[in-house]
Amino acid sequence: MPLSCQRDKFDLPEGLAYFNTASQSPCLRSSFEAGERGMRRKLHPWAPERANLATEMEQCRALFGGLIGASADNVAFCFSTSYGIATAAANLRLEPGKDVLMLGGQFPSNVYAWIRLARIAGGDVRLVRRGEDFDWTGPVLESLDDGVGIVALPNCHWSDGALVDLEAVSAECRRRGIPLVVDATQSLAARPFELDKVPADFIVASGYKWLLCPDTMGFMYVAPKHHKGMPLELNQQARTGAPSMESGDGIGGELKPSARRFDMGAADSMVHMPMSVKALEQIAEWTPTAIHAYLTGLVDAVAERAAERGLKHPPKDRRIGHFIGLYRETPWPEGLAEKMAARGAHICFRNNALRVSPYLFNDMGDVEKLFSALDAELA
Rank of each mutant, 00 (worst) to 15 (best):
L280C: 05
P199Q: 07
W332S: 12
A205V: 00
D263C: 11
L163N: 05
A279M: 05
L255Q: 04
D145M: 00
T21H: 09
F262H: 00
E14Y: 02
A76E: 01
L127M: 09
A293H: 12
L12H: 06
K9H: 14
P199L: 06
A22R: 11
S269Y: 01
W114V: 00
R309K: 10
E246R: 13
A376G: 07
A189H: 05
A168C: 03
G38H: 04
L326P: 08
R119T: 09
I291A: 08
E33C: 12
G335R: 09
K225F: 03
P192W: 06
G97Y: 02
W114L: 08
A379Q: 07
D8V: 13
H227D: 02
P315A: 02
L370K: 08
Q6T: 10
N52H: 13
M57I: 14
N20S: 15
G65L: 01
K369Q: 15
G35Q: 08
A259G: 00
R175F: 06
G248A: 15
K228Q: 13
E246T: 09
R260C: 06
G104R: 08
S258G: 06
C27P: 15
G253Q: 02
P314W: 02
L103P: 09
D263L: 02
C213T: 13
M217S: 09
K256V: 02
H227R: 00
T289D: 12
E194F: 08
Q59A: 13
E56S: 08
H227V: 00
G325V: 04
G218D: 04
E338Y: 14
G123K: 00
R37I: 08
L212G: 07
A284S: 15
A184D: 04
M364Y: 12
G253H: 05
P224V: 00
P26G: 14
R119Q: 15
A88Q: 02
T240D: 12
S4L: 14
R350T: 09
A345F: 02
G253C: 03
G265C: 08
P2M: 11
R191P: 11
S80Q: 06
S80P: 05
A47Y: 13
C213I: 07
G229E: 00
S187Q: 13
P274I: 06
M57Q: 14
K339A: 14
I347Y: 11
L103K: 00
E14K: 12
L53G: 13
A47H: 15
A290F: 07
E338A: 15
G250Q: 11
A113W: 01
Y359R: 10
R29C: 11
V140R: 03
L141Q: 09
K278G: 04
F219C: 01
G177Q: 02
V111A: 12
H322D: 05
D124I: 00
I120G: 07
C27F: 14
A279S: 14
A266V: 10
L195A: 06
L67T: 03
Y327S: 12
A152F: 01
Q6V: 09
P199K: 05
A307S: 13
G250I: 03
H292K: 10
R116S: 13
F202R: 07
H157R: 07
D135T: 05
P192T: 10
F64D: 10
G69K: 11
V164G: 01
P257M: 00
F262T: 01
H346A: 10
